[in-house]
Design a protein around this nucleic acid. Structure first.
Lengths: 132, 132
DNA sequence: ATCATCAATGTAATAACATCACATCGACCT
DNA sequence: AGGTCGATGTGATGTTATTACATTGATGAT
């Protein structure tokens, strides 16, 4: 696994902002927050994000075109990740479910489909927002 | 359930193109294919797609910003749908898995999360493309 | 030392995806 | 006729992502 000190300057800056933010951010929000650190162009953000995702430190939320810092410990490799995304407050919960993973891998096997990436995103309203 | 004759002109045109196409199309591909039917602006496509998705006749593939006609029979309501998307040929397989659905609904219940929409997309390479 | 290489970076331009704002039309109802 | 409502037409704009090309900086080989 990659450690923080192995990240480049831009990667560290992007991860820093994501880690200190509750909820997901779009690439352009990240860019705005990093302008005073010298960021000028979207590509600087996208390149950093690509590497961070490769390292497993950041996840992309496909259904909202945004990015979050991974909340799992980085000591072990994890499998398929599912997200619960609150459409009201933006909160994101990340979890793994071995049964779900097994079922999806089962389908892949049955259909001779070589799986490279799985996206599971649940949109809705979180407990806090329901209570409010 | 909505029947074909209840669709508006634009909705029918969009569904027609999607139904006669193998694989997903982007909104702008649809627009291009519908220019000679009088389509001029993206909004005409997006509006039709919104309705068709509401009717359950079309699905949006979040991870590739594209749309496919639903391949299920329309006689019954189906639950959570998962997609297998071949990154090589674009082929899309649509399926339901009751166990997966149950697990995800279980998580939602446990976390008092009111689920409104679930996205499951598996990216990879299909059997045909692996054989080639 | 100097040269080759390769990853990371900087920058501008452009492509791809999606929505807003506002006007119009047509069906239906009263 | 007048009112309402969903669908439509149209231009402008907003948002997300990539292409293309130049530069920098570290590493290793000759």
């Amino acid at each position: 696994m990659v450690h923080a000190q192995e990240l480049t300057k831009n990667q560290s800056l992007v991860l820093d902002v994501l880690s200190h933010t509750e909820g997901p951010l779009s690439a352009y929000s990240l860019l705005d927050q990093l302008r005073d650190k010298g960021f000028r162009a979207p590509l600087q953000v996208y390149r950093a994000l690509d590497k961070l995702m490769e390292f497993g430190l950041v996840h992309r939320l496909e259904s909202i075109n945004s990015f979050v810092a991974c909340t799992h410990s980085h000591d072990h490799k994890h499998g398929v990740i599912a997200f619960g995304i609150c459409d009201t407050c933006g909160r994101v919960d990340e979890f793994c479910d071995a049964v779900v993973e097994e079922r999806l891998k089962g389908w892949s096997k049955d259909h001779a489909f070589r799986l490279s990436k799985t996206t599971i995103e649940m949109r809705g309203t979180c407990a806090n927002c329901l209570a409010a």
